[in-house]
Amino acid sequence: MNALTYFLQRATALLLAPFVLVHLGLIIYAVRGGLSAGEILARTRGSAGWAVFYGLFVVLVAIHAAIGLRTIADEWTPLTGRRLDLVSAVAGVGLLWLGLRAVIAVTAV
């Protein structure tokens, strides 16, 4: 970890806190009267607000988790140097792809 990744991990953690709280609050609100896919999609489809909210959420998670996974891989596997960077990049891009794909799926009209 260097000063840049240290900063990015702390900054994304700071920003993720309100996103997680809103997300948890939304879950509690959404399941009040039972939960169905139709109900969720009715709320999210065509919603620019939720698209931006969860889009940003996914970007922050991808950055934060990729840096954290690099640290775990450094401490618990024999990987070093460029291989660690590669593992971190693959994890970050993978999370970004999976997350944005899900956001697009539930918010696109």
Binding site: M1, N2, A3, T5, Y6, T71, D74, L84
Partner: peptide, 9 residues
């Protein structure tokens, strides 16, 4: 002290 061996670890 900056890097994988340094303070940020």
């Amino acid at each position: 002290v900056t890097g994988d061996a340094g303070c940020h670890s």
